[in-house]
Design a protein around this nucleic acid. Structure first.
Lengths: 161, 161
DNA sequence: TTTTTTGCAAAACCTTTGCAGTTGG
DNA sequence: CCAACTGCAAAGGTTTTGCAAAAAA
């Protein structure tokens, strides 16, 4: 394992905030980075690198996928971006200022339950007390069954993704 | 997401048990499957498909990787095998009768804390009470920091895997 | 004999890397 | 000008799929 290092999340509310942050770190504000930031600011929910490269289904110009990955990593390192994994499938990226919630994902219907920071503290506390372990649900969410699926009859031929 | 369907874990203590189980289901006991079972019975810990195909570093004959994946899936469907993910990296497979514990993984040092069935029930109960969600830590473990890493000074240039 | 399973090859999928050329500061 | 960054192409790691040949029952 070993999760990407991210500086503390940066609270950038605008593209200008984000660009200022980059410059403060001596990083360049290139066309590709500006476009990536535009995409993330315009996005309503976390996106895969592929979706970002696709420019919001064509509403923005397409970017090179390798550069997108490189830039996502760069921006994540300075705390502007964060990403997480919803089980299998590609990583999902969002502005750190937007994606502050922690997630619980239903493994049957893929429903995502997003909870505000702190709401999982009692759970973390229980784990700390019982196992001397600091659980973090930021990069890999909690997986299980949502209320609806948990009470539904066990599906017979349940297929993998 | 959507996790592979597995029948209830089958308590096969020997290869013969496992083979009987296959025959009961109308599945064939082929050379490749027998070899896969031998490998899993001989393994001391969960293995990646690649490790299984490699025949325990050459102690057993090499198998075809595609067949290994197909057979792991088949055996998982009848409950003889289960697999899980330790963060990024390949899935890890074990006999369902062996790998009954749930896991907590340190995202910094990769240490794995294995706990017996039931030990996480208070945590699950807390999550159920707070979020009406049935957490399962079987396929994706709990990720966080082990005691040692949690108390260690925050590493500076922490790299992704 | 017939249906399942195999082995090989190829592809799919997500992500990273090498490198020569471009660009931001 | 020159280090940082880009785009392209290629490769890396994991898993899946197509298909003709082989083998289990």
């Amino acid at each position: 394992m070993t999760i990407p290092h991210v500086g503390p999340p940066v609270d950038a509310q605008t593209i200008d905030d984000a660009e200022a942050h980059l410059r403060e770190r001596g990083m360049r504000v290139s066309t590709a980075r500006r476009l990536l930031l535009e995409t993330l600011f315009a996005a309503e929910r976390p996106l895969s690198a592929e979706q970002i490269a696709a420019g919001l289904d064509g509403r923005l110009p397409r970017s090179d996928l390798a550069s997108v990955y490189r830039n996502l990593e760069a921006l994540e390192q300075v705390g502007l971006v964060r990403h997480f994994h919803l089980g299998h499938g590609p990583g999902l990226y969002a502005l750190a200022s937007r994606q502050t919630q922690e997630l619980l994902v239903c493994e049957r219907c893929d429903a995502v339950l997003a909870v505000d920071p702190g709401e999982l503290d009692p759970v973390r506390e229980r784990i700390r007390a019982d196992f001397d372990f600091e659980a973090r649900f930021v990069h890999f969410p909690i997986v299980g069954l949502c209320a609806r699926c948990a009470s539904a009859p066990a599906e017979a031929g349940e297929a993998d993704r």
